[in-house]
Simulated assay, not measured.
Amino acid sequence: MPNPVLLNNLEHRDLRVITRRGADLGDQVMSAVTFPSEFRDVQACYPIVFRKTVDGLGFEPIALFGFQEGENLFLQGQRWDAPYVPMMIERQPFLIGVSGEELMVNVDLDHPRVSRTEGQEVFKPHGGTTEFLEQANSLLFTIHQGMQSLQGFLSALLEHELLESFVLDVELNDGSQNRLVGFYTINEDRLQGLSGEAIVKLHQANYLQAIYLVLASLSNFRALIDRKNATLHV
């Protein structure tokens, strides 16, 4: 379980963050939540699909790294084999805290990236913030802004009934049949059938481009299947 606490330069003056990649550092995950302002970078590498939120009341877009829980086909030992790592992965072990209207930086003290002996220093010896922490602050702020805009995008998709569930059946090189279920994507027929007025509204809200980036990202399923096949011994 995460153990987030408010980051401060007294209790955490010797805190370090391990930045290499690895399964032992929390990178062996199937997916990461993303948001429209990140879609352009994400769709260059990963399929973007939607899943229901934990409470079952809404949806969230995710970048897919594998076909089953605990599978990251982009993780190659201590290397992430893609030119772009989604922000929700990159931010770890930091989280956004909110106090009133003020944004705070929290750190998950139980995250495997947190160390006292190796990795990037978070604070300078006399208490000032390091460049590493400044970059983390900037990343968290970008994520916060992206998540703030996400609800409007999802509401627009639901308003126009643009989300549909899909099933992906895959036969791998070893002959095994695999099925990816439980995810949603954009209904292209319904999108094409929208009125001109609806299209204009989506465009003016900067949602139309995000929708097409999601659709473009689906071509990455072929590369993801190739990565899966490369792990098999046939």
Score class of each variant (00 low, 15 high):
Asn3Tyr: 11
Val5Met: 15
Leu6Asn: 15
Asn8Gly: 07
Asp14Phe: 08
Gly22Asn: 03
Gly22Trp: 02
Ala23Val: 04
Asp24Arg: 00
Gly26Tyr: 03
Asp27Arg: 00
Val29His: 07
Ser31Tyr: 02
Val33Tyr: 01
Thr34Ser: 03
Phe35Gly: 06
Phe39Met: 07
Arg40Cys: 10
Asp41Pro: 11
Val42Asn: 02
Val42Pro: 08
Ala44Gln: 09
Ile48Pro: 05
Lys52Asp: 15
Thr53Asp: 07
Gly58Ala: 07
Gly58Thr: 03
Ile62Glu: 05
Ala63Glu: 00
Phe65Trp: 00
Gly66Phe: 00
Gln68Val: 04
Glu69Met: 01
Glu69Thr: 06
Gly70His: 05
Asn72Trp: 00
Gly77Tyr: 01
Asp81Cys: 01
Ala82Ser: 04
Ala82Glu: 05
Pro83His: 06
Pro83Leu: 07
Tyr84Pro: 12
Val85Cys: 06
Met88Arg: 00
Ile89Val: 08
Arg91Asn: 07
Pro93Cys: 04
Leu95Ala: 10
Leu95Thr: 06
Val98Tyr: 10
Ser99Ala: 15
Gly100Ser: 03
Glu102Gly: 14
Met104Ser: 14
Val107Gln: 13
Val107Thr: 06
Asp108Leu: 05
Asp110His: 08
Arg113Cys: 10
Arg116Met: 11
Arg116Glu: 12
Thr117Ala: 12
Glu118Asn: 05
Glu118Pro: 04
Glu118Ile: 06
Gly119Thr: 01
Lys124His: 14
His126Phe: 13
Gly128Asn: 07
Glu131Asn: 12
Glu131Gly: 14
Leu133Lys: 00
His144Tyr: 09
Gln145Arg: 08
Gln145Pro: 11
Met147Gln: 08
Gln148Leu: 12
Gln151Tyr: 13
Gly152Arg: 04
Phe153Trp: 03
Ala156Ile: 06
Leu157Ser: 02
Glu159His: 04
Glu159Trp: 05
Glu161His: 03
Glu161Thr: 02
Leu163Asp: 03
Phe166Trp: 03
Val167Arg: 15
Val167Glu: 10
Val170Pro: 14
Val170Asn: 09
Val170Lys: 09
Val170Ala: 14
Leu172Phe: 13
Leu172Gly: 10
Ser176Ile: 11
Arg179Phe: 12
Val181Gln: 13
Phe183Ser: 04
Glu188Pro: 07
Gln192Leu: 12
Gly193Phe: 09
Leu194Ala: 00
Leu194Thr: 00
Glu197Cys: 03
Glu197Gln: 06
Ala198Asn: 09
Lys201Asp: 13
His203Asp: 15
Leu208Gln: 04
Ala210Cys: 08
Ala210Gln: 02
Ile211Trp: 08
Val214Ile: 11
Leu215Pro: 11
Ala216Met: 14
Ser219Met: 15
Asn220His: 06
Phe221Trp: 08
Phe221His: 07
Ala223Arg: 09
Ile225Pro: 11
Ile225Ala: 05
Arg227Val: 07
Leu232Ile: 03
Leu232Thr: 02
Leu232Gly: 09
Val234Ile: 13
